[in-house]
């Protein structure tokens, strides 16, 4: 008797967790799928049943988003800023992380804590002071050049993105470099390689797995960032999320849903594709490791 009762609660529990899992999965997948479907609907379809599937593939939404809402040029800006920021970040962070984690010198402990303290600084707090700083530099340079240089500049924005990502990236790379044995450096030193050669041809290649993680993580960060882009780029060179922000605001004023959903798809599609690829690679990596034992 007792046993069958145990079995029953077991079954009930099983049903409960399956329902919970499917419920959460649906609550995530349906809204995302809804955005994709809505992006190819014609405007009049938004006034009929919201659950109806699109009547056809109404590509006009994307054309409108790309041309009238300038999402095309914003896409280009986002690509430029994200790519530049990743390059800046790796060029600056890799040598710094390597030296900070593997060299003892006067002040090395202080510099380590100094950079680590940056983990607590949030971009949202310092967006306005950075804006004022660039504004000040611009008004200084205007007396010489007749025009501003630092605000509305994609290269400067990329540099600032890279700077704000430094603490986390150096923290992550340092903790990897710390795990490597010092044999490699000693061997390279005996072979006559200098410090720079040792770093570039021995140590940095070994950090490839960590570098991949750094690139993936910061790509998402830079691609999705909007508060710095909004604050520092009041002019034409807006990035995608800021462009989408304008589309959201415009949709609230004049009801034109299609291009707004198209804009959302343009912003999230690259991250979703990347995520799906990475997931596959992660699972493959796990099986390879398993075979090796």
């Amino acid at each position: 008797m007792n046993k069958s009762k145990g079995m029953r609660t077991e079954t009930l529990f099983k049903i409960f967790i399956v329902v919970a899992l499917i419920g959460l999965a649906i609550s995530i997948l349906i809204p995302v799928a809804w955005v994709f479907l809505a992006s190819i609907k014609e405007n009049k379809e938004f006034y009929s049943n919201p659950w109806a599937l699109p009547e056809g593939f109404y590509f006009q939404n994307f054309i409108e988003a790309f041309q009238e809402a300038q999402m095309g040029s914003y896409l280009l800006n986002s690509v430029i800023v994200t790519a530049l920021a990743l390059v800046f970040l790796l060029v600056v962070a890799l040598p710094a992380a390597y030296v900070l984690s593997r060299f003892k010198f006067t002040g090395s402990r202080f510099l380590n804590s100094f950079v680590k303290a940056g983990l607590f600084i949030n971009v949202s707090y310092i967006a306005v002071p950075i804006f004022l700083m660039l504004l000040g530099w611009d008004s200084g340079i205007r007396t010489l050049l007749d025009e501003g240089l630092f605000l509305n500049n994609r290269v400067v924005l990329a540099l600032i993105y890279a700077s704000t990502a430094l603490p986390f990236t150096i923290f992550l790379l340092s903790s990897y470099f710390e795990t490597l044995p010092s044999d490699f450096e000693e061997a390279a030193g005996i072979d006559g390689a200098g410090y720079f050669r040792t770093m570039f041809s021995v140590m940095l290649p070994m950090a490839a797995p960590s570098i991949t993680i750094v690139i993936l993580f910061n790509f998402l960060l830079f691609w999705n960032e909007y508060i710095l882009a909004l604050t520092l780029m009041p002019g034409d060179h807006k990035t995608l999320p800021v462009g989408l922000l304008n589309l959201l605001a415009a949709e609230r004023a004049a009801v034109n849903y299609g291009p707004m959903y198209a804009g959302m798809v343009i912003v999230m599609l690259p991250t979703l594709i990347l995520y799906i690829i990475v997931q596959k690679r992660l699972t493959q990596g796990m099986t390879v490791g398993g075979v090796k034992g």
């Binding site: 600056v92 040598p95 510099l111 940056g118 310092i126 950075i130 004022l132 540099l159 603490p167 770093m199």
Partner: peptide, 20 residues
């Protein structure tokens, strides 16, 4: 190796924080 990182970090994170 460390100067570029320290300069950028100081200029765009530490100084603005003090400015706040």
């Amino acid at each position: 190796c460390i100067s570029p990182a320290i300069i950028l970090f100081t200029l765009f994170m530490v100084v603005p924080t003090f400015e706040v």
